[in-house]
């Protein structure tokens, strides 16, 4: 028996919005410690990994490990039927070929139930080694989204260059070129606007903007995004999954990490 309840169903909607264009089908691995998902896009250039901690749920029970393979586009459709303030419960019985989704409205007299068929998916699970990254840039998620969108007007790829003075995002295309430079800054009043750069050695790598623009669909989850880079390994774009409660308290309940293989010179 698996049962997981989130008090703010909108968090699940945001997670699905962040991944369902990159991957259409994926398996959730459910264990006593939480739910996780790992999947590559069809061209195997990028990989998304979602992790939700069991203790981030208001109720979490997983008697035995389960793999819930499903069509994420369909899951997204059903989650659209939940109100943003609804409590959302996911239930799966051992050996069943479907999961149940229960939406409880805040008024406490309206309950909706939906079922989705599960799928047997051939999971290609990749081992992601622990890496210590040369460069880590923490910046406003909305700023990163804006930069990726703007530079995609110029070209298909962005070159991210880090030096002592800051981080440069640049693109070149038929019409010309463009770049956005950010230097480290911190604001006591607005920590969500901070840019934090930690760097061991200068580095420059090029990535396809098509994928980065898909990753920025996770922007509503968290005010800051972390980019981690090292030579010859995929870029990691990480968003914390933050649940905002009625009292305006913020609770980190997991993360989404996107990995993107770099473009390299022929």
């Amino acid at each position: 028996m698996f049962e997981a309840k989130l008090d703010r169903g909108i968090v699940l909607k945001k997670i699905l919005d962040a991944i369902n264009q990159l991957v259409n089908e994926a398996s959730w691995e459910c264990t006593s410690s939480g739910m996780s998902l790992q999947a590559m896009d069809t061209s195997h250039v990028s990989l998304v990994a979602v992790n939700l901690n069991g203790d981030g749920f208001s109720k979490f029970r997983c008697d035995r490990n389960m793999v819930l393979g499903m069509n994420l586009v369909n899951l997204s459709k059903i989650l659209k039927c939940a109100g943003n303030d609804d409590k959302v419960t996911i239930k799966a019985a051992d050996g069943d070929d479907k999961i149940k989704l229960i939406f409880e409205a805040p008024n406490e007299y309206e309950v909706s139930q939906y079922e989705i068929k599960l799928m047997n998916l051939d999971a290609e699970y990749l081992g992601i080694p622990e890496t210590s990254y040369n460069v880590t840039v923490k910046m406003p998620a909305a700023k990163f989204q804006r930069i990726c969108r703007d530079l995609n007007q110029i070209g298909d790829a962005v070159t991210i260059s880090c030096t002592k003075s800051g981080v440069d995002f640049s693109a070149t295309g038929d019409l010309g070129n463009g770049s956005v430079s950010l230097s480290q800054n911190s604001s006591f009043d607005k920590p969500e606007d901070n840019v934090t750069i930690s760097m061991q050695e200068p580095l420059s790598q090029t990535f396809a903007l098509k994928y980065l623009n898909q990753f920025t669909k996770a922007t509503p989850l968290c005010s800051q995004v972390t980019l981690s880079l090292s030579p010859d390994v995929p870029l990691v774009v990480e968003y914390k999954i933050i649940e905002e409660n009625e009292e305006d308290s913020k609770n980190e309940i997991g993360h989404i990490r996107y990995y993107l293989a770099p473009k390299i010179d022929d």
Partner: peptide, 14 residues
């Protein structure tokens, strides 16, 4: 010209 690499170049099957 830059070539796009894929995940399998970096991450192995676990």
């Amino acid at each position: 010209k830059n070539q796009q690499t894929t995940m399998s170049k970096y991450f192995g099957n676990s």
